[in-house]
Each structure stands twice: as C-alpha cells, then as structure tokens.
Amino acid sequence: MLTLRLLRARCVAGALSVLLVSLALLSPATIVKAQSRLDDYPTKPVKIVVSFTAGGTTDVIARSVGQLLSEKFKQSFIVENKPGSGGNIGNEYVARSAADGYTLTIASVGPIAVNPTLFKNLRYNPLTELTPVILIADVPNVLLVSPKLPVHSFKEFIAYAKAANGKINYSSTGVGTSSHLSSVMLMDLLGVDAQHIPYKGAEALNDLIAGRIDFMFATIPSVIGQIKAGKLNPLVVSSLNRSRSLPDVPTVAENGYPGFSSGSWFGMLAPTGTPPEIITKLNQSVNEVMVGLEERFVSEGADPVGKSPEFFKAFIQAEYVKWKAVVESSGASEK
C-alpha cells in the first residue's frame, strides 16, 4: 500500500514538473515574441485565392484590394485563381490551408451562402470552416432586356411577362447563381412560369442582346459597359436601395415589392482558427485602403461596404437563411 501511494505521489510530482516546464515556456519574453510576430504580420507574401477565372467581378475586386494591401504593407498580396465546382474548389483549398493569415479568399455570395444548400455532397462547410474578415462590396443584380423587346419599364415588363406566362424565358450564368435565383424570386412574386436557360460565359449576354432570350439578371459590373453602349435596357436593380452606379434605375422594392433583395456581394475570409489579431489587422487595413477604391468601385458597378468582421458574420448568416429558402423552393441542386 505504501509503495502504491509513493508511486502515485511521484506521478503527481512528475505531472507538476511538466506543467511548470510548460508555464516556463510561456514566459513573458515568449509571449512578447509571439505578439511581435502578429504585430509584424505580414512578413512574407500573402496568397488571395479567387475561386473563379481571371477577369470576372471577384477577380477584379481581389486584384484591386490586393494591390493596395501590397502597397500598404510593402509585402506582396498575390491573387491565385482556382476555379471549379461553383467556387467550391478554391474555397475548400483555403479552408484546408494553415490558419496563419497567409492564405485568404475573396469570395462571393454563391460559394459562401448558396452552395451549402445547393450542393448535396459539399466536402467542407464555408459557414464554419472560413472566418469572415470584411464585406468588401455589395453588387446589385440588374434586370435586363434586349432593346428588341417591346418593354421599357418594369411595369411594362410585368404586363409582358404575365401575358407570356409559360412562354417567356430567361438566361443566367449557371444553376444556383444569384443571376438564376434572382429570376426565380421575381417570377415567384409575379406568379409567372418562365423557362430557365443556364449558360456558361458571355453567350448568355450575347443571346440576350440578340433577342433570343427575353430577360436576365446580371451583376452590374459585368454589364455596365453594354448598358452605357445602349445594347441592353436596365429596368430595375435587385438591391433594397438604388445602386450608386446606376442611380436612375429604380429598385424592385420601389415598384410595389417591398423587401425584395437578391444581389451579389464580395468579401474576404480566412481559414477558421486564424489568430483574431490578424483578422482585426486585415479588417482595419482593408477598410483603410477601400477609401482609395471607392470611386473606381462605384464607376464599375460595385457599392463599397466595409465594417467589422462581426457585421460580415451576421450578414453571411442572414444571406444563408434567405438563399436556403430560395434554393429549396426552386428545386435546384448540384452534386
């Protein structure tokens, strides 16, 4: 019995020794050194992953923000495109990366708020495996028709759509995109049955301009050039408030459908587990550099937002709930 008690005492003493050694490792000098590494962030190039091809809205925003962050920190912020699977490939790559602030993503509404419902076999959860840093820009969708269509206002569009119930069609940039789901939401409100024709790439706009497609929702940056050239007629924007990029175009809400909101947005996220000090530093830095991007963003169709990581987190959750209902109502799904 005495031997057993002695053995237990020695085990406890050994455990205490390990604990004391561990505490010694966390000496004030060590803590200060660790904090210094965070204060010095970034000390090497930072990768910003874009889950779509170069030249798109996400890519343009990422490169604009990355350039100014490079200038601010005197350290490279390099954009790397990893397209595929509706944005899932690139964002999963980021979620699986080291949570040290050196791999980030600038992503849009689809991969973050829509895909968790749209994709039935998603291999990661963007809502829990990516940490919001900052909501960079709100990008409304705009309802477009060809000049060949005898429609010049939203009121005339409603009358046209109801008269052509079951025969009217619309294009989108793909199943489950905000372009597609915005049309689903609007047709549900109007009680109109419309045929969806999904596209990949610029052909959707080409067929709309040619009059082979009746209407389409598209992000303002992707069509602002065609609108200014008179190739497409904008009827309404999908945001609650008018876009600063198209101030003369009314909202759906203004036309008797309060609460209608179905635009796109773009924000920065990091792997979950990234030190909060780095999240805060990135958030503050992007808020600062966005001041220099405001005029450019607005001219290209994006409304700058900014604000805190907590704001972005709550915003994403609200978007997820909204789009979950729309996706389930539409019956859209991807494997």
Rank of each mutant, 00 (worst) to 15 (best):
A15E: 11
K148R: 08
L26T: 10
L246K: 10
I316R: 01
S329T: 15
A137N: 01
S239R: 05
G56W: 12
P28I: 03
N255K: 15
V145C: 07
A99P: 11
S182D: 13
S238W: 13
Y102M: 03
N241Q: 15
W323G: 02
P221L: 08
S178R: 03
L127D: 13
L149R: 04
V291S: 11
S333G: 14
V305I: 02
L282H: 01
T103F: 01
E71M: 07
P234R: 04
R123Q: 15
L118I: 09
H152L: 04
K44E: 12
Y102C: 06
L26I: 06
V289N: 03
L190T: 06
Y257K: 05
Q195V: 11
K44M: 05
G267R: 02
L143D: 00
P83V: 02
R37S: 09
T57E: 04
L69C: 03
P116T: 00
R296C: 00
G211M: 00
E295M: 05
V291D: 09
S243A: 07
A302H: 00
A325S: 12
P111L: 00
E71G: 03
V142M: 04
G14W: 09
E80R: 11
N287Q: 15
I48K: 10
G110S: 11
G230A: 08
K167Y: 15
V18Y: 11
A253Y: 03
P126I: 04
T177Q: 02
Y320G: 04
F215D: 03
C11R: 15
A15H: 12
A24M: 10
P258N: 07
Y41F: 15
T219F: 02
A302D: 06
G225K: 09
K322T: 09
P132G: 13
K324Q: 14
K228W: 00
R63D: 10
T173D: 07
V49T: 07
F266C: 04
S262P: 15
L235T: 01
A98V: 14
K82I: 14
I227A: 04
L235K: 00
N141S: 02
L235R: 01
E295P: 06
L4G: 10
I48F: 06
G86L: 05
V321M: 12
N88S: 11
I112E: 06
V139M: 12
S183E: 11
V49S: 06
D40M: 08
L6V: 12
Y199P: 00
Q35E: 14
V326Q: 05
Q75F: 09
E334N: 10
S97I: 04
S22M: 14
S245D: 00
I136F: 05
F157K: 09
A194Y: 01
P45T: 12
E300I: 00
S172G: 06
V298N: 02
T219G: 06
T30H: 13
T105L: 00
P132C: 09
D100N: 13
S178Q: 11
V60P: 00
F266P: 12
K44D: 09
F52I: 08
R96D: 05
V79D: 07
L68G: 04
